[in-house]
Structure formats: structure tokens, C-alpha cells
């Protein structure tokens, strides 16, 4: 079956990203609660463990996707004039992309 438009895929991504984020945040909090790093160096080293780094990267990718679908939904609901809708969607996409670049920079800076 062909899924041309973005209704079903967007809904599925929203659900999947929500589950991933819930699990990530829970494990992250558990780690902070039971095995909190003593120093900045230790915290940095933990964040740079390959598994944690990849998981964190995926987390932020999911977060941005989730935010995009949610904000897109709000705009589709309430903003009907095509021009304003386009501008708002572009602003949201631009803002989220910038946040993405920023996150990526922080994560990569830690690696180098």
C-alpha cells in the first residue's frame, strides 16, 4: 500500500519518538540518581561512551522530530491562510534545524 501524504507516518513517528524519549529520560534519571558523576571530567567521560553518545544523539533527533510533528499539527489545526501557514512552518523548521545544529555541535565537540 502506498502512503503518499504524511498523516500516518507522522503519527507513527510521534508515537515511536515519544516511547524512545520516555525510556531514555527514565534511564538517564536513574543513572543520575544512583550513579551520579563526581566531577565534570567524569560526567564528560560518561557522556562520551560510544553507546551513551549514540543514544543521546538519537534522543535529540527524536526530540526535534517530535517537536516538529507537534508544532506542525498545531499550525495545521489553527492557521488556515496558506501564506501565513507557510511562513510559520518555515520559522518552526528553521528554528528546530538551528537547535539541531547546536546540539550536534555540542555532541561533536565532546568527541574531539
Amino acid at each position: 500500500m502506498m502512503w503518499r501524504a504524511s498523516g500516518f507516518r507522522a503519527w507513527l513517528l510521534q508515537r515511536v519518538s515519544a516511547v524512545y524519549m520516555a525510556v531514555y529520560i527514565l534511564l538517564f534519571m536513574l543513572h543520575l540518581a544512583f550513579d551520579a558523576p563526581d566531577s565534570y571530567q567524569e560526567w564528560r567521560a560518561w557522556m562520551m561512551l560510544p553507546f551513551i553518545a549514540v543514544a543521546s544523539f538519537v534522543f535529540f533527533a527524536m526530540l526535534l522530530t517530535h517537536a516538529w510533528i507537534g508544532l506542525r499539527d498545531v499550525i495545521i489545526d489553527y492557521v488556515h491562510p496558506v501564506g501565513i501557514r507557510f511562513v510559520l512552518l518555515a520559522l518552526v523548521a528553521g528554528g528546530l534545524l538551528m537547535l539541531g545544529v547546536w546540539v550536534l555541535r555540542i555532541l561533536l565537540m565532546g568527541v574531539s
Partner: peptide
């Protein structure tokens, strides 16, 4: 399918 018919 699509953003409107069901997924609003």
C-alpha cells in the same frame, strides 16, 4: 490517509 481526514 493524509494529515486531515483521520489524523486531525
Amino acid at each position: 490517509e493524509g494529515p486531515y481526514r483521520l489524523f486531525r
